[in-house]
Design a protein around this nucleic acid. Structure first.
Lengths: 174, 174
DNA sequence: TCAGTTACGTCAGTGATGTTGACATATCCC
DNA sequence: GGGATATGTCAACATCACTGACGTAACTGA
């Protein structure tokens, strides 16, 4: 495939933004780097990478997730997913069960071991978040959630909202 | 360089987090994915990737940046940096000049073409940011900046602050 | 029931980005 | 002049993504 340099729409008007938000751009970069850096060090000890973390996280958060739904969340190809998922299965962090109504589906569940690791990783990230929120004034948490949610592509928000919905389910059960 | 994990005040008994901040963790993931996704599509047309974007961004923002300073910002090896930097040099998006006081140094500058691309990419990200901020209430911008800054590893904040300082220089000159 | 679609697995090859380790070169500083 | 510093480079490798093609089992509807 060739890069179609000459084919970019010349009529791209792109109303050129009042002033680039350099500060937020850079803060976002550094904050995210450190945010994912915490789990990275732990994952290394298990022979896992970030890809494994993402899979484990969403499976643990959404018991019974199908492969198709996971692919939709992660936005990677099934070949990419399969490699890391296979390792999580072999090492006993995730398990598959046959779909209840559709036997073609593989419903994914975190094993106790997988759940423990997922929670551990989530807690390290939570520590950084809580520390950050403690440094900031009250109301920062709500503002941060609003801002991050608004940064998400509108078309994708239903998917994200559905994951959050699932959070509510879990909470109301406890 | 090692992070002095073992040297933190032992009086911190690691209170194991009240409740995992699942919502913020997931929002952060999705928001960042879309935040970097915008430039990705443009970069592809130039045969560049995210690595090129990061280098170009910080060079454009900090004219005269040295290789060592850039390595410190990006936290990658010089071999990794060299590959992408070489491409940016060859394609004429960045240029090198001899250090003024130290002739071993290569001071990096964005060319006009490089500056144009860097600004273009920053503006696409700014559009998403501005749209998000417009959706949120007043005060969200300040809160978001506070939160993201607080998420950064304290030891790294001086570096980030120095970059922001440079922003101020540029502003006061304009 | 049979044909088409769907859900998933897998083989093979490639590319982008990161790593470690070793070594070369030019320059600075004492 | 000798050691440290700033940078460049060669080689090998790991991770995580991609495309394309093909296989299998199970659902679905005419």
């Amino acid at each position: 495939m060739q890069t179609a340099l000459g084919m970019r729409t010349p009529a791209a008007p792109e109303p050129p933004v009042e002033r680039p938000q350099y500060e937020l751009i850079e803060l976002f970069f550094f904050a995210y780097r450190d945010f994912v850096g915490d789990p990275d060090r732990t994952l290394e000890q298990y022979g896992f990478g970030r890809a494994h973390h993402r899979v484990l996280h969403f499976v643990e958060r959404n018991p019974g997730l199908t492969i198709a739904a996971l692919l939709d969340i992660l936005r990677i190809t099934k070949q990419s997913l399969n490699r890391v998922l296979k390792e999580l299965l072999e090492k006993g962090y995730v398990e598959q069960r046959e779909g209840l109504t559709d036997r073609r589906q593989r419903l994914l569940y975190a094993t106790p071991r997988g759940r423990a690791l997922a929670v551990d990783l989530a807690c390290m990230q939570t520590k950084r978040i809580d520390r950050a929120l403690a440094e900031c004034g009250a109301g920062t948490e709500a503002a941060a959630k609003r801002f991050l949610a608004a940064m998400i592509e509108p078309a994708d928000r239903p998917v994200v909202a559905q994951l959050a919905q699932h959070d509510d389910d879990l909470e109301s059960r406890s």
